[in-house]
Amino acid sequence: MGEVTVHALRNVDIDLYAGELLVLLGASGSGKSTLLNILGGLDVASSGSLYYHDLCLHTLDSDGLTEYRRAHVGFVFQFYNLIPSLTARENVKLVTDIAKDPMPADEALQLVGLGDRLDHFPSQMSGGEQQRVAIARGVAKRPNVLLCDEPTGALDAQTGKLVLSVLDRVNRETGTTTAIITHNAAIGMLGDTVVHMSSGEIVERTVNSSRASIQDIEW
């Protein structure tokens, strides 16, 4: 068998604006995760260019990308990825320790509604609570970009809504540019911009005139 070149992404041209909430929609294998990885400085495109303000991300080496993530990017994972040996507060502090101008860990946890769970370990919290800690951890260093990879993927609908409402509020209150990856089309209504992806290409880009409220979403 000869080798076949498969393009994960093709002809992608996208701008993220300060403070906006972007929803990346697509089925499994559509290339949305690859796009997020590239935006987050985890991966480099084989061709093309990517700028964060004046910083050419496509020319950075692995250490340069680490510094970019460290200074500017917050992440929220599908499976939370909290450090099991640290309490909620400590999980947040772990990140604020390496940030230049972070918000206090307690304040970040207040923001996600967990002010009363500060000293709990991940194993002592529900999935929704764990994901809210992860969001607090993501925003506590006051990143310019918050990237969320299927943040509700492992949660039931009720808890998922709660988590989304937290993301929505954080975006409004802190003005952090936020990108949410999901395969759930209903979530698209939450974003300022919705990008539909399929087979590695952007097939549709919608700008919502106004963001729907969480209560209006059905899934």
Binding site: K93, D119, F121
Partner: peptide
């Protein structure tokens, strides 16, 4: 596997934990 179980132990009881950086606590 659920998150590995951690709970407050002698580190907390001895009140050392709060004095240490997060990495050392881990």
């Amino acid at each position: 596997e659920p998150p590995a179980r951690f709970r407050a132990g002698w580190l907390e009881r001895m009140q050392i934990a709060s004095l240490l950086p997060s990495s050392m606590r881990m």
